[in-house]
Amino acid sequence: MSDTGSPANKAADDTPAPTEHLNIKVTDNNNEVFFKIKRTTALRKLMDAFCERQGKLPSSVRFLFDGQRVQATDTPDTLEMQDGDILEVVQEQIGGAC
């Protein structure tokens, strides 16, 4: 009777195990920084850390994943990132004419 609960509890503990970490590479074409980040952590942390390490203002750069803008509130989960994915850091650009 009493032991019936234990396998259920065990199973419940096992399934949320995919709180695995991802390795994400952040690069601005000159520097590469690897970060280990939880799937559910907002990427803001990673962006801030990169800017701090490179001595850049967060308001001077854009972060792109697969060619699309990464917002500070995005998480690896929402972007469906996989281990080893690359986050690109690019300078702001403006365009008007040739």
């Binding site: 967060p58 308001s59 854009r62 803008r69 300078q91 702001e92 650009q93 403006i94 008007g96």
Partner: peptide, 22 residues
């Protein structure tokens, strides 16, 4: 070059200015 913030984006959308990537 405007900052990559909302304010920067807005300023680059002002009439006659070049549009920023943000």
């Amino acid at each position: 070059i405007p900052p990559t913030t909302l304010a920067g984006a807005l300023s680059s959308l002002a009439d006659g200015t070049w549009v920023s990537a943000t």
